[in-house]
Design a protein around this nucleic acid. Structure first.
Lengths: 124, 124
DNA sequence: CGCTTGCCTGGAGTGCACTCCAACCTCATA
DNA sequence: TATGAGGTTGGAGTGCACTCCAGGCAAGCG
């Protein structure tokens, strides 16, 4: 283990991720973030690994995945290699949902363009 | 006015739109749905216009637009032609958000594919 | 030394978008 | 006439994802 590895305080992580300090603590509490290291005085010291996990969580979050499902995924990761199949299945299901969502939004875009076009003609 | 125009009960509309009867009544209460006609005994009788409005609301809803904003749009529609500019602006803002969301999801899709690829081979 | 800043905790509170409840009404059918 | 299905209302309740609070601790500064 590299003892000189960079660590980040909660306010730094909040600034980098856009999450609030409250939300970061809450993520840890519910198990979405595995126990974060502490300084000798008990303050959180986030690692690069924590940051990249938060980054990935942000992606999942942006897909609309429920927090409970992300916690489930985090548990699977912690449980080790024998959960590979379940993890891949979860990711594949999410992938299908994201693709469907993109299609849906693309359709909505067309409708918005149509409506905007109507307003555009009526009142240029 | 065409007196033979088809009308729908709340359960029919719920079945067609996928919304619950509760939600339909709530939409009317908050002004997202303009006052729906009633039968002589006070039951709602939805018109085709109500259905297509609900359809459009569903599209807006699927973009992630807040209910309060949709109510605002509904108010603008009720207020008449002098709100055209504001309506178009609202739709254009929504359009930009939808386009951005599609981009975001497309990026997420790539990341999911990458992760799934890793599981497919051997390691996460 | 006191003061400020930053962080800690468990638990309570918030806002959104529904979702349900209780009590009641109307109509068609048995 | 009574029973059941489907509808009405205002208001209360729910689940989610945060968001905030009170009370306290530790380090740095003048």
């Amino acid at each position: 283990m590299n003892l000189t590895e960079t660590r980040y305080t909660i306010s730094e992580v909040a600034a980098r991720t856009g999450l609030t300090q409250h939300t970061l603590r809450w993520y840890e509490r519910i198990g979405l973030l595995h126990h974060v290291d502490r300084s000798h005085s008990g303050q959180r010291r986030f690692s690069e690994a924590d940051l990249s996990w938060l980054d990935f969580v942000g992606k999942l979050r942006s897909t609309g995945m429920a927090v409970a499902d992300m916690v489930r995924y985090a548990e699977l990761v912690r449980e080790g290699e024998h959960t590979f199949d379940e993890r891949r299945a979860l990711l594949e299901r999410t992938r299908r949902e994201v693709a469907a969502r993109i299609d849906e939004l693309t359709g909505t875009l067309a409708i918005l363009d149509y409506k905007i076009g109507l307003y555009g003609k009526a009142q240029p």
